[in-house]
Amino acid sequence: MSLLQIENLRVTFATETGPVEAVRGVSFSLGRERLGIVGESGSGKTITGRSVLRLIRPPGRIEADRMTFDGIDLLKVSEKQMRALRGPRLAMVMQDPKYSLNPVMRIGAQLTEGLLRRDRISRAEARQRAIAALEAVQIRDPERVMEAWPHELSGGMGQRVMIAMMLIPEPDLLIADEPTSALDVTVQAEVLSILDDLVKSRGMGLIFISHDLRLVARFCDRVLVMYRGRIVEELAAHDLMAAKHPYTQGLLNCLPRIGGPRAPLPGLDRTGDWAHV
């Protein structure tokens, strides 16, 4: 059975110049698998991810024919029930640790806050679970990191802390929004393998949002390609090179390659009919 089902999701923002549709009729379902969503900035991929957690603030409005998570209608539940889902069942890792961690709270306090408030367990036990989570994301000296302030951590460490924070309540579905784009390639590979292990060992569903087609192709089982708020193509990740849609092909072709020709890179041709839908 699928974990998440979305039919005809629309997200509209009311602006001074009239409504802007950021997501225009997105449908997909997700099992316990790794689903990638790719597209350029402004394609609606982040908004789609945030909609699942209902993290769209007014003047934004979420509409869908159907949006269910494990049988729960996400459009109907109250804000209180939604809060109970966020964390233990549905979690999201944001893009940039610099802006997503509380700068004036020690890492340990941020990691245990949810456990203390939600699960009402003892301080010692919360601390133990936080340290275990840091170990799970391959942080070598978790004791020191617990005492550290966010600004004392490198980008890669900060990103791992955020992943650890989301994993403590063992969610069924993790939405990772560009979790590695602030990281170096070698650290990126590490963070991805951590996520990969967690998906496999805990049977978690993962939505991996990225602008990097190559990364998504390597890491995910299935890929949705978004353009201007719509899904223009859905592919098995290993078929990415055989993409049919001109937008997907354009995104692939415009990347430079090691040992590739020095000729000008082909730009993305936006003159086709597909570009004006």
Binding site: V185, D212, R214, L215, A217, P256, R257, I258
Partner: peptide, 12 residues
């Protein structure tokens, strides 16, 4: 290792 981790290797 930098070469191996380079994102474009996976299209090869």
């Amino acid at each position: 290792s930098l070469f191996a981790a380079s994102a474009d290797r996976m299209l090869d």
